[in-house]
Design a protein around this nucleic acid. Sequence first.
DNA 1: GTATACGGCTGTC
DNA 2: GTCAGACAGATTCGG
DNA 3: CCGAATCTGTCTGACGACAGCCGTATAC
Length: 938
Amino acid sequence: MKRSQPEEQQGAAPNKKSKQQSSVPTLTASTKAAQEAADARLARELAESEGLVLKERKERKRDSGSSKSRDMKLEKGNGKMVQQQDEQKPTPKLGSEDDSDDDLIIVDDPPPKPTPKKSLASFFAPKPQPSPKLKPDPEQKPSTKRRPSASPSKPSGGSFFATSIKKEAKSTPVPSTSKLVAVKPLDTSLYEFNPSTDVDTSLWPGGRMPYSFLTEAFVIVSATKSRLIISRVLTNLLRTAIELDPASLQAIIYLTTNRLGPAHEKDLELGIGSQVLGKAIRDVSGLTPAAVKALSNKLGDAGDIAFEAKKTVRLLVQPTPLVCHKVFSTLLSLTRLKGSGSQDRKTATVKQLLVAAKGEEVRFITRTIVANLRIGAVRLSLLTALARATCLSRKGGVGEGEEPEDEWWVTKAERARVLKELSAARKGKIKVKEEEERRVEQKMEKAEQLVRKVWARHPQYGHLVDALLADAFIDLETRVPLAVGTPLEPMLGSPTRALTEIYTRLGQRPFVAEAKLDGQRGQIHVSTTAPEGAEESGQGCWYDPLPGTEGKRLWVRVFSRHLLDMTDKYPDIAYTLSALVHRESTSAEPLTDFILDCEIVAIDPATGALKTFQELSYRSRKDVEMGDIKVRVGIYAFDLMYLNGESLLGLPFRRRRELLHERFAPLKPSDVRLARYDLVPSCTDNDPEKVKEFFEETLKMKAEGIMVKLLDEAEVEVASDEEEGSDSSGSPSTTSTSPSKPSMKRKGRRKVLPATYEPDKRADSWLKVKKDYLEDLGDSLDLIPIGAWHGNGRKASWWSPILLGCYDQDTGLIQAVCKCMSGFTDEKYKEINVRYALDGENTTKIRPSEIEAGNLKPSVWFVPQEVWEIRGADFTLSPVYPAAQSLLGERGVSLRFPRFVKVRDDKGIEQATSSEQLAGLYERQSEGGGGKARGGEE
DNA sequence: GTATACGGCTGTC
DNA sequence: GTCAGACAGATTCGG
DNA sequence: CCGAATCTGTCTGACGACAGCCGTATAC
């Protein structure tokens, strides 16, 4: 790849010789790649310094005087450690700077970076009081409601800290954690909170942020639903990291977003789920499987279970505190455990973590391990927090103590002014509405927008964080640019319930309707000059033209919808692109690099007919060789985000589409082993009849429906009701002569719909109309609820999912068809709980003989008695559900995307959808006819 | 020791 | 993929 | 005119069917 181009430098100025100021280090392709490599290296090093891969650790230790001697123990059997923990009895000596006598992995390396100063803290900080209240914040309405106690583990009332710490203090002689508590709680107002004085770092091991500190933030965050509070806590958390332990920032971010690295990085699977973890919990706590099971039914969350289970365990020895960056690198190291015996080693490590974790740490480390943090904050909350934290605690770009007031930086002085204003306002002294605060808020919002924008185009925390730490927001977009080789978040469409809704949403603005093919989304990156460093780091792949074919040597990388790297799943795609680039190489402007958005669909290589999604999924996923491809695919392109060194994201769809059609005409390689390349079928005629025809056509080719895309930016009225199209087309400045009826509530606000490519947005300028959204087209069945499982998390007190069956009229048996958990309101769940109460007469522990359910084992069986209408998208051939199996052969029929619609009071179980009907519906579907498929209706 | 069946995890929609 | 629930902010209504 | 009620946009989490992959336990 060439020099990185500032993306979206408006006006498509064709030639931009890298105009970066030399003073602003930019993240060019090369540095970026180098960066990725460095990331990887760092990760490796971290991991190697851990107990698992440890090699030269001893040596290093010896050098650095402060070492602990026991690492070796770890080296032989991790599994033993747990036991040892329990048995050792030396009393922990608090605060002695060598306080780790026991040496679970995750501890104690001397800090890699100079320790942040922390002296001040001890002066200003009053004694840490262990009860930072979750107080409603001064400038916000007091909406600090706790979550309903549906998740039973949550502290109910009172300060959680206070209680948890008290307990801790009781059970352990030395309440070391209480010393780590923030002197001001993390939900302190942003204007008041000041990491360098308000956090007691005196016990931070080596100056690194302890895991318990992070956990505190988690506790507060998960105790509230208020986004404002969440954002504030996360902001303060990141600020303390930036100011006191920047080296941990990345680890902290990954830990709170519950990821181990960028999505597109390979081999980041933990391979640990609730089962493996359950075993670890049993081992550590000594509880019986039954006891754990009971907890599980009650709590419905792995972390809560671990927390409860661990309560019963008394450790004689206080484990050394966990530290954020170590926890992270330990998790990363789990990722690398492969091969025979790896399972045991993994559980051993997990057990060590569990043993080392204290109190709330147990809950969250467990959730982290099963990749379900349930904190009410993921990516987006974190990005805003990161932006705000950078505004408030910026590191880069300024010298020590310097605080220039500029458009980004929120200085101490400004914060003080806001505080003053707020307190004055509270006393009623000022009429003016918090001007100062508004100004500062706007500053931070601007920063949020920027960070989100940059993220969407380059979703990689490592790069983002480094860039922010180095130079905050200055030229951020060019330093962390859209780049070939790094995926961008895909643009999404918003669901649309009816074809007519297109016009109420878009008026008469010109649009294109495209077939929404049923395959797998692909984001294809191609370059004739690979991004530097890409090869070493194993990203993407060079493809030489296949022997005997025309092609061009190309570097290719393919990403999935969630940005996972699936390059080696589709070599046939790479070769096709090679042929395509070769074809264009004689044109005036040959293709050098580009990013395509497309759908990859299984096809019949002979006829080119599209095949079903299920058939696509038969394709192997790893290291596919051209020789043994069994499932042929076609590439159906629908958008172009980058072309020959320039980002096209800022162009209207009309232009992007033109470029796509001009430069990327269909290609049917003569070599059948290659993928076909085509443009997605589309219809530019906006006449409602034509659109409807097209929609039906797409159904015939086994598409799910259509995507409707606005061609040019437009200002549209948000529809009042039926008022649409007819008038709203022309001048946008309708000034609304208070439209028609005064009774109409909304008088139609106007809003701008961009036709640009908006990564990571479910934009209203893309509308997806799927057949199963449509009232009269999708498949709906009438099924009998026959069993259920205990719900998890939010649904821990309900039955969820619920097993459903159809009625086999020949045998009178009820055959399981699918599970269903979507479409129920909380109200409905309550009703279900009443009717199918665990000890009531409508449930049984053992399977009623009239139910046929294969190997499925729900927690309860329902006595069949009612019929529910269930909607789904497609029928699938199922290896696990017995429905209609006798009629179809080896496999039964099940339903894709099942959801509850309503109860059919008018039907008895004999009138439920029958096995025959099911079989019929499946067969009709595979014949390819669309059409109405409604079971059980007379 | 090798071949096979199975359970668990992850990722696609 | 599906869905419902929840918060926050914008808009409208009621007095 | 202001506060309450209502609507909208956006985010979050709780789970569906299936497929392949991987490690482990079992059979030969």
